[in-house]
Design a protein around this nucleic acid. Sequence first.
RNA 1: GGUCCCAUCGUCUAGCGGUUAGGACGUCAGAUUCUCAUUCUGAAAACACGGGUUCGAUUCCCGUUGGGACUGCCA
Length: 526
Amino acid sequence: MRKGLSADLITRVLGGGPKYTLAELEEKYPPRNLPEGAFVTRFSPSPTGYMHIGGLYMSLIDYKLAKQTDGVFMLRIEDTDTKREVKDAAKIIVDSMKRFGFEYNNDEVYGPYYQSQRKDVYRSVAADLLARGLAYPCFLTAEDMEKIRENQKNAGFATGIYGEFARDRDISEEDIIRHLDAGEVPSIRLYSTGNPDNRIFCKDAVRGSIGFPENNEDIVLIKSNDGLPTYHFAHLCDDHFMRTTHVVRGEEWLPSFPLHTQMFRMMGWTPPLYIHTATIDKIDPETGKQRKLSKRHDPEANVAFFLADGWPTEAIIDYLGNIAASGYEEAKVKGQVKSFWDYELRPKKIPMSGVLFDNRKLEWWAKEYIATLPVDELVKRVRDWADEYDPQWAARIGDNPEYLKNILAIERDNPKRIRKDFITWKQTLQEVSYFWDDLFLSNKEYEFNKDLLSAFLSTFDICDDKDTWWAKIVAIAADKGVKNGDVAMNLRVVLTGRTNTPDLYSIMQVMGTDKVVNRIKDVING
RNA sequence: GGUCCCAUCGUCUAGCGGUUAGGACGUCAGAUUCUCAUUCUGAAAACACGGGUUCGAUUCCCGUUGGGACUGCCA
């Protein structure tokens, strides 16, 4: 154990004195007044790029856990890595939360919620550690550490600043002053008293108690370059003073679990309950191996891509939600719950092994979801999408909104038998594009029976009711000696260019006489 | 190399010592339909391997193998 630093030295070492004592912080950030069993969670992304599907998954769990217990869900931006920070990334995250309806409650009392604005908190806690001899200023340079790492590798030792390799671990006040006088700025390191020969047990809500060798690394608490905390130290300070009860984070944090447990004990604070989630993976097309969906290599991991493609956010929530709570799907199909928000998410049931992202299943959720939408709502959602992502479609719809509504209303009257052709807003429009002459692609492959088409044309009357219309088709089939379906298929392909469409009668009604007649004539004549 | 996590149909999973190992997506087949949609019916499809413990292991323990994560003044 080292001797604590004097107040004067602490101020110099930190580049400023502590603003608060620990007791003052406790008072400033009092325990929350919440009902028994309420979860306080937080989504804490670092603004280093776009919103990732894995981040969305974690924030869904965070939000759901807080919501179902009448707790609090916070959004905390971990912008402590000034080098990797990407402009507007925080805005994208905030926007995503809004779009998916994850309402966070960033109560002012516990803020600010940007870590870069919480230096006072970190510095105050660091000062306490320094005063107690549980942390020390370290003047090792990047080159020094590189050299140490090299030597460790060559000698077969574990890399890192620990024990005898931690040069400044027991640095004297005189030496500190000497470095300071030379204009050097130290980082603040943890004075670790952990011994790898001992085991420390860490509690995970899903995996239970996990044993690790104790941590003996003097990890950096405060970085020298910007005075900001590392993840570890920020986690300790923020989740304590924000009174987080449950920390949902990726399993990549498992290795630093003993460190975090050690730090909480050192402070005499009760650690939150941890939920280390599994990653959402894909099969790497090059190696053929399963790996985490990555920001750098997988554009499909970008939530913005799902939005631009017009996936209903509800379907994405359903899909992700079912991964987190596997019983949800069955409850939903059986009608026991209306949405994911009605289904209880149990922390213990959150999966702990990596999950392959399954686009087919997402498609299924999306089809099911869109099929539940009333026409007006469907039209609205499609239009909203077009307004934001596809100006051409937006203009086209804007010219005649009723037309789109009539198209999308086809075969939507019987709620039990709604076609499930629509997957995304974008694909919905593509699916019905044949209703517009300039988008209509006549089918060049299909061998039309012009005889049948002529016969239909001569009897066609848009005013016919459905029975009359069908009777005419049956009559033509009988007359020409073909099946009813043959006549129908010829009509289907001639009008839509496709072999699979909704009800033909409805299509003709929506298209109107001119389109129907012209398209048939084009084939007969051409 | 070290530490840690994980292991049931192709995929997501139910299972918490005795089950014909269940469901969902997907796949395939059949029925209905004007259609390759919908709806309905049915089928194929899994406990990684080896040791224990036990009357009995998918289930508990150990090992092996396989997959994953970490090993930064990044999170």
